[in-house]
Simulated assay, not measured.
Amino acid sequence: MADLSVNIGNLKLCNPVMTASGTFGYGKEYEDFVDLEKIGGIIVKGTTLHHREGNPYPRMAETPMGMLNAVGLQNKGVDYFVEHIYPQIKDIHTNMIVSGSAVEDYVKTAGIINELDHIPAIELNISCPNVKQGGMAFGVSACGCSEVVKAVRNVYKKTLIVKLSPNVTDITEIARAAEASGADSVSLINTLLGMAVDAEKRRPVLSTITGGMSGAAVKPIALRMVWQVAKAVNIPVIGLGGIMGWKDAVEFMLAGATAIQIGTANFIDPAITVKVSEGINDYLERHGYTSVKDIIGALEV
């Protein structure tokens, strides 16, 4: 078996396969379907400073080769997470990572998470398109990105991953700003802003009119952006967006991703993470590689 381990800052992953926030609950919901300890990292659903009900229904819609969501960071807040969720997940032997989608107050939330011994990293989501205040606003300019990353870096001492929005003109500019402000890694892409219309009712399908599009249809865009960012920064890049199987994952790694995240595919196959990890290993062995690190950025152009 090939060596599948990779490093994201000080974070060591047993393999490069992670779950995308919002698609895997808190991990425990999937333990009847997959061995959680065989996943490189589990990014739990977005955690905000205060309780959030999320957006009104309907807030999900299927699209050709994808889906739209406008959930709006529904969660019970960071205090509830610390008191009720953390005790349930802290002893799972993989990297349990909190998505810091704290649009109300990134810094306070990050400071609280920093004190949890068994949470080795946060993914700072500065790119959520489904909330009215904050959210994507921070992630669409280098200045906004720099401001929030520096503030969080001051209070958060562990591995800091910054999740980037694709809804920008030049994603490399945002990535470089995140790196210069203290990010240990960047992950991309978050969902693309889209909408669906009910022609018979002559109304938008989603209550919020627009939402975040994910799934296989976004993969070519995500792949292009990962390739661009991997050439622009010196920190590890985590690739996501339309990864539905091992071949997609390998393509992202060849384009420069050190690790990948699986999102929408979890809804189709709850065991897809382990299947992708096994598929990467098979690919490496067929091509004579001894380590997954050998294919990171190995695209010949």
Rank of each mutant, 00 (worst) to 15 (best):
residue 1 M to H: 08
residue 2 A to Y: 02
residue 6 V to N: 02
residue 7 N to S: 13
residue 8 I to N: 07
residue 11 L to N: 01
residue 16 P to W: 11
residue 17 V to D: 04
residue 18 M to G: 04
residue 18 M to C: 13
residue 19 T to G: 10
residue 26 Y to R: 04
residue 27 G to N: 11
residue 28 K to V: 12
residue 36 L to C: 06
residue 36 L to G: 07
residue 38 K to T: 14
residue 38 K to H: 06
residue 39 I to H: 04
residue 39 I to S: 05
residue 40 G to N: 11
residue 41 G to E: 07
residue 42 I to A: 11
residue 43 I to A: 04
residue 43 I to S: 05
residue 44 V to W: 04
residue 47 T to P: 00
residue 50 H to N: 11
residue 53 E to V: 10
residue 53 E to L: 06
residue 66 G to M: 05
residue 67 M to H: 09
residue 68 L to Y: 06
residue 74 Q to G: 01
residue 77 G to N: 03
residue 77 G to P: 00
residue 81 F to P: 04
residue 84 H to A: 04
residue 85 I to V: 15
residue 85 I to C: 03
residue 87 P to T: 03
residue 88 Q to H: 14
residue 88 Q to F: 03
residue 92 I to K: 08
residue 94 T to D: 09
residue 95 N to K: 15
residue 95 N to A: 05
residue 100 G to D: 15
residue 102 A to W: 00
residue 102 A to M: 07
residue 105 D to V: 01
residue 108 K to L: 09
residue 108 K to I: 07
residue 108 K to V: 09
residue 111 G to T: 13
residue 114 N to H: 10
residue 115 E to G: 04
residue 116 L to K: 13
residue 117 D to T: 14
residue 118 H to Y: 07
residue 118 H to F: 07
residue 119 I to R: 11
residue 122 I to D: 00
residue 123 E to V: 00
residue 124 L to G: 09
residue 124 L to A: 09
residue 125 N to S: 10
residue 125 N to K: 13
residue 127 S to Q: 13
residue 130 N to L: 04
residue 134 G to L: 04
residue 134 G to S: 12
residue 135 G to E: 07
residue 139 G to M: 05
residue 139 G to E: 03
residue 140 V to D: 01
residue 143 C to F: 14
residue 143 C to K: 15
residue 146 S to E: 14
residue 148 V to Y: 03
residue 158 K to L: 02
residue 160 L to V: 09
residue 160 L to I: 08
residue 164 L to Q: 11
residue 167 N to V: 09
residue 169 T to R: 13
residue 170 D to G: 11
residue 170 D to Y: 10
residue 171 I to F: 08
residue 172 T to Y: 08
residue 172 T to Q: 12
residue 173 E to L: 12
residue 176 R to Y: 09
residue 176 R to Q: 15
residue 178 A to R: 09
residue 179 E to W: 14
residue 179 E to G: 10
residue 180 A to D: 13
residue 181 S to P: 05
residue 182 G to L: 07
residue 184 D to S: 12
residue 185 S to K: 12
residue 191 T to M: 03
residue 194 G to E: 01
residue 197 V to G: 04
residue 198 D to R: 14
residue 198 D to S: 10
residue 202 R to N: 15
residue 203 R to A: 15
residue 204 P to L: 08
residue 205 V to W: 07
residue 206 L to D: 02
residue 208 T to L: 08
residue 211 G to K: 12
residue 211 G to F: 03
residue 213 M to Y: 04
residue 215 G to K: 05
residue 216 A to M: 01
residue 216 A to F: 06
residue 216 A to L: 08
residue 219 K to W: 06
residue 221 I to T: 11
residue 221 I to L: 14
residue 226 V to P: 00
residue 228 Q to V: 01
residue 230 A to G: 02
residue 238 I to W: 01
residue 239 G to H: 03
residue 245 G to F: 02
residue 245 G to P: 00
residue 245 G to T: 00
residue 247 K to Q: 15
residue 252 F to D: 02
residue 252 F to P: 00
residue 252 F to S: 06
residue 252 F to I: 08
residue 254 L to V: 11
residue 257 A to I: 12
residue 262 I to A: 12
residue 262 I to C: 13
residue 263 G to D: 10
residue 263 G to M: 12
residue 263 G to E: 09
residue 264 T to V: 02
residue 267 F to R: 00
residue 274 V to I: 13
residue 275 K to R: 15
residue 277 S to G: 15
residue 278 E to S: 10
residue 279 G to H: 02
residue 282 D to M: 08
residue 283 Y to M: 14
residue 284 L to P: 02
residue 285 E to Y: 11
residue 293 K to D: 03
residue 295 I to S: 06
residue 296 I to W: 07
residue 298 A to I: 13
residue 301 V to E: 03
